[in-house]
Computed example of a mutant assay.
Amino acid sequence: MKKYPSGMEAALEVVGGKWKSIILYHLTTGKKRTNELRRLIPDITQKMLTQQLRELEKDGIINRIIYHEIPPKVEYELSEYGLSLRTVLDSLCLWGERHLEKVYGDRSAVLEVYCPDDTYERL
């Protein structure tokens, strides 16, 4: 078993990096197919998306649902365990909006508003 100096490092190993948090953010709104995720995250390569999805599945954060039909259909969703990250993701989203407001004077650079207002008030 690997030793971690802090819980933060253990958490970042699971959800850190450029893509995992963004994938999880999109899965908070419901099940998504691979192509849906590619459209939502246009800068990610297919190889990287597949790798990140596999790692999140291995860590129990997401579920891979395979429908046995022709053509084959696969969807991804947050697992029950992954849903426990919702408040963390909401907080990061809101912090990012506040950061834009502080640095640039507004949050207009945020194209998609997902963060719930009631959480914003609590921060």
Rank of each mutant, 00 (worst) to 15 (best):
R38W: 08
E101M: 12
E112P: 12
V74I: 15
Y76P: 15
A10H: 08
I22R: 12
R64H: 01
K31P: 12
G60W: 00
V88N: 05
G60F: 03
L56S: 11
H26Y: 05
D59K: 05
E101D: 04
L56V: 13
S79Q: 06
M1T: 09
E55T: 05
T29V: 10
V110Q: 01
K20D: 01
T45K: 09
L24K: 00
R86S: 14
S6H: 02
D117S: 14
D59A: 08
T119H: 10
A10D: 06
E80L: 15
L94G: 13
V74A: 11
K3H: 09
V14K: 11
L83I: 10
Q52L: 06
G16V: 01
A109K: 04
Y67W: 09
M1D: 04
T50W: 08
V74P: 04
W95Q: 07
R64Q: 01
L89K: 02
K20A: 01
K73A: 14
I22Q: 13
K58C: 09
A11P: 04
I62H: 01
T119K: 12
V110T: 07
A11G: 13
M48V: 15
Y114C: 13
E36G: 06
V88K: 01
L12T: 02
R122D: 01
R98K: 12
Q46V: 15
A11F: 11
D90L: 14
E77Y: 03
R122H: 09
I23N: 01
K32M: 13
E80V: 15
P116F: 09
G60Q: 03
I44P: 00
S6A: 04
L12E: 04
D43G: 09
E77V: 12
V110F: 06
K18D: 10
R33V: 13
E57P: 03
G60S: 07
K47A: 14
I44R: 02
G17A: 10
G96A: 14
L12N: 04
L123M: 14
T28H: 07
D59R: 03
I65L: 13
A11K: 02
C115G: 11
H99Q: 09
P5Y: 01
I66L: 13
R86D: 11
L53D: 04
T28K: 08
L111K: 10
D117W: 14
M8W: 07
L92I: 10
S84E: 11
P116E: 02
E9Q: 07
L56W: 05
G105Y: 03
E69F: 04
G16A: 07
I41P: 04
E80A: 15
K3I: 11
K2G: 14
D117V: 15
L111F: 11
S21F: 08
P72N: 03
E57D: 10
